[in-house]
């Protein structure tokens, strides 16, 4: 290549300076702050981390956030994979269906707040429907059922996104392999387990990571419907960080942010490693 060594940097630099100014450098400052006192700035070692890890709210929020990811990720991934496999073989309706699943992505959370309130109220639409089947329903937002509402919101919002991702992954499996397998007498399920599943593994890593990251955005729905202090079962790390921010607990926030960054970083690395091995 006949390029000078710095041409790449010339293009990258303006953006990189911004990223450094707004994200990289201040994060280093956050790391420093996580080891110092909020007022005075004396070095306190791991004391902030100790405070955070023994904080009841932090433990509750971490538990809920992990539980949420553990429930909604497998659900979303399985449903969207199933739909993608089916949609991909349709000839007439595929475009329409894909478009329809993506609609929630375009609907701002704020626009559905009212609908969510009316749907999940004790006297709302959902309980009205359930009443017809003879069940009395529950108070969705003010009991443990709120967790289910959150899972539903997440799947509703992200289904189309994941279906499109899976279809992209599926399209990379060469068609000839299927044809050859069919000629050899393999049925639908055998094709799925022995050709489709191994074939989409490279895409699966990205899809899991992206779905996990999008799971943090469900806070929008949770916050808009239930405010700063929702039912205990859907009190997420996002709520906690907001409340810390309002109280200006910089030391706790710094330790919390560093911990969270570390956990996410390790998680992504682990996932990538386990996928590379296979």
């Amino acid at each position: 290549m006949r390029q000078k060594k710095y041409t790449g940097w010339f293009f990258l630099l303006p953006g990189f300076l911004g990223v450094s100014l707004f994200y990289l450098i201040p994060f280093l400052d956050v790391v420093r702050r996580s080891f110092t006192q909020a007022v005075g700035g004396n070095f306190v070692g791991a004391a902030n981390y100790q405070t955070v890890f023994t904080n009841q709210a932090f433990l509750l929020a971490s538990k809920n956030t992990m539980r949420f990811a553990a429930v909604c990720l497998p659900l979303l991934l399985l449903i969207s994979l199933g739909i993608a496999v089916l949609v991909q073989r349709l000839e007439t309706w595929a475009g329409f269906l894909k478009g329809a699943y993506l609609v929630p992505l375009a609907i701002p959370a704020a626009s559905v707040v009212l609908l969510w309130q009316l749907l999940f109220d004790r006297r709302g639409f959902l309980n009205g429907l359930l009443h017809l089947t003879g069940w009395d329903g529950v108070d969705w937002m003010n009991t443990g059922a709120s967790f289910g509402v959150l899972v539903f919101s997440y799947i509703w919002k992200n289904l189309g996104y994941d279906v499109v991702l899976w279809i992209a992954g599926l399209s990379m499996v060469p068609k000839e392999v299927y044809e050859a397998a069919r000629v050899d007498g393999a049925g639908e399920w055998r094709c799925f387990f022995y050709i489709t599943l191994p074939g989409i593994r490279p895409a699966a890593f990205t899809i899991v990571v992206i779905s996990f990251l999008n799971s943090f955005k469900v806070f929008r729905e949770a916050y808009l419907v239930a405010g700063n202090y929702p039912h205990d079962d859907i009190y997420l790390l996002q709520h906690l960080f907001n409340n810390w921010f309002r109280d200006l607990s910089m030391d706790k926030m710094a330790a919390g942010a560093v911990t969270m960054a570390l956990v996410i970083f390790i998680l992504v690395c682990l996932l990538q490693k386990s996928w590379d091995k296979n």
């Binding site: 707004f22 994200y23 201040p26 994060f27 400052d29 956050v30 702050r33 990251l213 943090f216 955005k217 790390l237 996002q238 960080f241 921010f245 910089m250 926030m253 710094a254 919390g256 942010a257 969270m260 960054a261 996410i264």
Partner: peptide, 8 residues
């Protein structure tokens, strides 16, 4: 997620 970069 935003919560990590919020303080920065």
């Amino acid at each position: 997620p935003f919560q990590v970069t919020m303080l920065s």
